[in-house]
Amino acid sequence: MNRSEITEKLNTIFPTVFNKPGLSITESLTASDVDGWDSLTHMILISEVEKSFGITFKLKELNKMKNVGDMIEIIASKL
């Protein structure tokens, strides 16, 4: 799965988790750009991404995710 396919799949997860139907992600998107993306919803997002891609993150990787681009990078390294 390449980066654009990962992005496409993430584009179906983000709007559901944050309850924002029109939300479209970019690689530079960070938590501060999305209303409601806090430490609580972040863990729900992580869990949904893991389920959807059939992967498991390490806590260490979680700490390295500073934006969506980092998340895509880590997902790609696991597929």
Binding site: I44, I46, L62
Partner: peptide
């Protein structure tokens, strides 16, 4: 909090 909630993430809210 983050390590704990990471461990319990499968249980949702």
């Amino acid at each position: 909090y983050t390590p704990l909630s990471f461990s319990f993430r499968k249980h949702g809210k």
